[in-house]
Amino acid sequence: MRIAITRLENKAAGDRALCARYGHDCYTVSPLRSRLNEDRIAAFVDAVNRDAFDCLFFTSALPAAIIAPKLKRHPRSIAIGPKTAETLQQHGIEAETLPSYYSRDFVPYLGAWLAGRTVGIPRADVPNDALMEGIRAAGGTPCEVRVYALEPTGSRLALDDADAILFTSAMSYREANWQPEPGLLLMAIGEITADAMREGGDPPAVVGDGSLSGTLEILNKQCVSPQT
C-alpha cells in the first residue's frame, strides 16, 4: 500500500524506512509549513541553560529538533512519543516517553512530582489550555514558549498515486487542501485527529495509537494485507 503522510516540509525523516518494515511505501504531503520565531527560541534556550526549569516537555519532534542541539544542559525531559524521543536522543538527551502519545497524559504521568516544579514547554503557536491548567492543578508552573507557528501551505495534496492518506494531526486535516477519492483509505494517527476528521465528515477507517508505527500495525491487523 502506498500511503500519503501529512508532514511538515522536510520533516519526514525515517517515515519511508518505517513503512517498509510494515510492508508499505509512503511519501510526504504538506498541508502545513513551520515559521520559526528565532527570538523566542534563543530566549528559551538561554532559560534552559540557566537552569530555569525542572522539566522540559517536548510535544512534537520539531521543537525537539530546534531546541536540543542548542542546549548545554537539560533537566528531566519528557517526549510525547517515540519519534520525538528519537530526535532528542540524536542530540544526547535521553528522554522519557509518555505511555500513550497525548499531551493529556503528561500530568498523570508525572503526578505529585510536579508540585513546586517549573515545566518548560517549547511548542507551536497552538493553544493547549487543558495542559496548562492541568500542570497548575498539580502544583506546577507551566512556561509555554511558542517557538514556531504553523501556516497552511495552500498546496493541493498530491494523492493520485496514493492508496491511503494518513493525517498526523487535527490541524493538518483541517487545513489540508484535498479531495477524497473513491477507494482512498482514510487514516488518523490518533483519536484527536480522528475526532477532527469525523467532525469534518471524513471518518477514518483506521485510527492509530498516536504513533506512526502503531498506526501501521493497526492498519495491517485491521484492514489489509500489506503490498510489497
Score class of each variant (00 low, 15 high):
179 Q>V: 07
210 G>K: 12
180 P>F: 05
205 A>M: 11
184 L>V: 11
148 Y>A: 12
181 E>I: 05
199 E>S: 12
207 V>T: 14
194 A>I: 10
191 E>F: 00
186 L>K: 11
194 A>C: 08
176 A>T: 05
147 V>K: 07
159 L>V: 09
154 G>C: 08
207 V>M: 06
174 R>V: 03
160 D>E: 15
165 I>N: 03
162 A>P: 05
191 E>C: 00
155 S>A: 15
181 E>H: 07
193 T>H: 06
157 L>Y: 15
164 A>R: 03
174 R>T: 07
150 L>H: 01
193 T>A: 09
179 Q>E: 13
172 S>A: 15
196 A>I: 02
153 T>P: 14
196 A>E: 05
190 G>P: 05
210 G>D: 04
204 P>N: 12
154 G>D: 08
197 M>D: 05
141 T>Y: 00
198 R>A: 08
153 T>C: 07
154 G>N: 13
167 F>H: 02
162 A>L: 10
161 D>R: 14
163 D>R: 04
182 P>H: 12
156 R>Y: 04
166 L>T: 01
208 G>N: 03
150 L>Y: 00
211 S>K: 01
177 N>C: 14
212 L>R: 02
196 A>L: 04
194 A>K: 01
180 P>N: 10
186 L>F: 07
182 P>D: 11
154 G>Q: 15
210 G>L: 14
177 N>K: 13
